[in-house]
Design a protein around this nucleic acid. Structure first.
Lengths: 208, 208
DNA sequence: AATTTTCCTGAATTTGGATTTAATGACTAA
DNA sequence: TTAGTCATTAAATCCAAATTCAGGAAAATT
């Protein structure tokens, strides 16, 4: 029984990360019905190697999705780094929640999951948690702005936050389905239209 | 070469309908990766019989989804039958767009498709068309209400209509994923909150 | 009634992917 | 060194599902 050295565990987690990323990319490409071989291909290994680390493919897929959601959320928070003005924060958040184009792998993964969640409890739980975290993020942002007098909220912040996240989600699906007249910018403006009503602030503002 | 009699075509379309319904139910249960055998089971036939009518399962699935969307849309229009007051029409439309519970097969089918649309052009086209039809339905409703002076629209009707459909879609996914605090009624009230802002009308109204 | 066509089944076959396993090289610890 | 563990592959095996097809019942046509 070897003691886990720093180097060893660094390597281990790097390997684990490779697998999770491969699974994410494979799922973004093939959906939740992705094959073990397809994951292996993305990882540059044989299926046996995958099985050595994850005897059950489902476990790997779940872990990959958890990691994907975590990254998605973390990136959104990171995009707010150093921005203090609530209106600017709201502008950035709305923009960062939408996929830029049809090939956005992160959102593609989330879309694939959304369809599965109606039938698969574990994915339902994960997506529900992600939804609620995003709602909480918006709520904090809205409440802060209201306290500072920048926003006049038309309703309680929970209601507005839920609607903002819901709009993002739905337009994410539309963009991923290549709606001919509904791209990232059009969708952002549609959400801004609601955000203006809900906050009485002339959004969007210039971001630095 | 037999002439197609009235009876024959009635039977043919009945059979076709059976297959489409079986495929819909099977897909609602198993998602877009549904197996031929699962469809056969729902149809009460062997897989060979399915293949006799649809040599390619994908064709059957596409037809089934088209039929499902058509029904979903038709039912929404039918729910408005005989209602003239725009506010009442808007109330009914918002309510009828949301799944009542997690076991709503129609919405379950649409959710499964949404995830697939990012990867499958034909489903993307179908869902985009459904989205646009629903938007058009709301637009007509909003414009009529505005003309009659019942609604004061905060923006152009296209913007409001898109946001209303987007909210419905997103909350449909949440409800299907069994969000613990976001059921049909909560979701409807969230949408009404936006609809009030957008129309300056104290929705919802009593429906008869 | 006889014939043809339509629809379907059940069994045989094929296919594609998952799973197992023996062998191997790389690394680690004593 | 040497022995042992770890990570991996490639090939063999297994399995489930798709596909094909000969045959037969039912329906339609003559």
């Amino acid at each position: 029984m070897a003691k886990t050295s720093g180097r060893e565990s660094r390597q281990k987690s790097a390997k684990r990360n490779d697998l999770l990323e491969a699974a994410q990319r494979a799922m973004a490409e093939h959906g939740t019905a992705v094959r073990l071989n397809q994951v292996a291909e993305h990882a540059g290994m044989t299926s046996g190697a995958i099985l050595y680390h994850y005897p059950d493919l489902q476990d790997l897929l779940v872990d990959a999705n958890r990691a994907g959601m975590e990254r998605f959320y973390t990136e959104r928070v990171a995009a707010l780094e150093g921005i203090n003005d609530p209106a600017e924060r709201l502008t950035v958040t709305i923009t960062s929640g939408l996929p830029v184009a049809q090939d956005d792998e992160e959102v593609r993964l989330l879309c694939a999951l959304g369809g599965e969640a109606a039938r698969n409890t574990i994915y339902a739980v994960l997506l529900t948690a992600l939804f609620d975290r995003q709602v909480a993020m918006y709520q904090t942002l809205l409440d802060t702005g209201a306290t500072q007098g920048v926003f006049q909220l038309s309703s309680d912040s929970l209601t507005i936050a839920r609607n903002l996240v819901a709009l993002e989600d739905a337009y994410g699906y539309r963009i991923m389905a290549s709606h001919p007249t509904l791209d990232h910018d059009v969708a952002a403006n549609l959400i801004f239209d609601y955000a203006r009503l809900a906050t009485s602030h002339p959004l969007p503002v210039e971001t630095t």
